[in-house]
């Protein structure tokens, strides 16, 4: 238990260090409200997608299909909206249609999650393969449906989800905070959350303890799909459009963010607070570099360095603790 806490402390130190470093390098711009708001606008999509990734990693699985899921779900919503509402002259009662469209998108995402869950839990396919196949299939569907075109022209009310500001806080950030809070509640306070950790650390033991592993895994992948769907809503609203292949480069980054936040790739360990902190580290680093005029690609390389550094530090500190214990 102590080592888990020490991981959060390490992350806290890195966050503070990077924050201070960026502030020193950009004393005039970094702490400006505009820059902070900018950072807050970019965080929610990656954050929600990382939550979708993390919850499956807790069970010892992985979900490679989250970006594809998000794209299909966004396309379903955007198709319904553009077919039924003219953005320049919204018909009366368009609020209902918007809610309907969003629900349809989220349901699509949950359906894909359900299929993933069945493949993993019932048929016993390894999660990496099941979701890899699903990713390629769903990507294909998005291309077939859109024929490669962009679906654009969403009603103003929808655009508010990604671009609106409430009391100075971007709407996307509020949604992300809510979703992260709900995820933390599920994981820490509900039976399902407890079982997710159990299945992740030892599926055989949890089975003998009377846990229905199949049901837990299916629910986990449905939740993962749902979170990808919510990310999709923010995504289409921010771009005011939906298209096949948006955000594909996020996929590997969500795995990095989860692992950086202390989620174990083998399952059983990981906290929402760690993930949020690692997302903040990544965001501060990328915004700070951006202000310095450093190439976005160098930022990505830097993320790679951070993750390896953290893993090496964890490894060494575990070795030291082991030696002390012996």
């Amino acid at each position: 238990m102590r080592s888990r806490h020490s991981e959060l402390i390490i992350l806290g130190c890195i966050t503070t260090a990077i924050f201070a470093l960026m502030w020193v390098f950009n004393p005039n711009q970094f702490l400006r409200i505009g820059n902070l708001q900018n950072m807050a606008f970019q965080l929610p999509e990656l954050g929600l997608l990382s939550l979708a990734m993390m919850v499956t990693m807790l069970t010892g699985g992985i979900n490679l299909s989250i970006i594809a899921t998000a794209n299909l779900s966004g396309i379903v919503t955007a198709l319904i909206l553009t077919a039924m509402i003219n953005p320049d002259a919204p018909p009366p009662g368009s609020g209902g249609i918007i809610i309907l469209a969003i629900c349809a998108g989220l349901l699509t995402a949950m359906l894909i999650g359900l299929l993933n869950g069945i493949l993993v839990a019932v048929i016993d396919v390894s999660p990496i393969l099941a979701t890899l196949g699903m990713m390629i299939l769903v990507n294909g569907l998005t291309i077939v449906i859109t024929k490669g075109y962009v679906i654009s022209g969403l009603p103003n009310a929808v655009r508010f989800i990604g671009n609106g500001v409430v009391l100075g806080i971007p709407m996307g950030t509020i949604i992300f905070a809510l979703c992260a809070g709900i995820m933390a509640l599920i994981l820490n306070l509900t039976v399902l959350g407890f079982n997710i950790y159990m299945v992740g650390s030892n599926p055989t033991a949890s089975n003998f303890a009377g846990v229905n592993n199949t049901a837990v895994l299916i629910k986990t992948y449905i939740i993962s799909g749902l979170y990808a769907g919510i990310a999709a809503m923010i995504m289409i609203s921010r771009f005011n459009s939906a298209k096949a292949g948006y955000g594909e480069s996020y996929l590997l980054v969500t795995i990095l963010a989860s692992v950086l936040g202390g989620t174990s790739a083998a399952g059983g360990f990981g906290k929402v607070s760690g993930l949020v902190m690692s997302l903040i580290i990544l965001q501060i680093a990328s915004s700070g570099f951006n202000l310095l005029g450093v190439s976005a690609f160098l930022t990505i390389a830097f993320w790679g360095f951070i993750i390896i550094l953290v893993m090496v530090v964890n490894f060494i500190s575990a070795k030291v603790l082991e030696r002390k214990a012996a």
Binding site: L252, I255, S295, F297, L298, T299, A301, I307, I308, M311
Partner: peptide, 16 residues
């Protein structure tokens, strides 16, 4: 994890 990280490092540095 290692190879996702090194993918980003190798590719990032090459592009820069």
């Amino acid at each position: 994890i290692t190879t996702i990280a090194t993918l980003n490092i190798y590719y990032g540095i090459l592009i820069v």
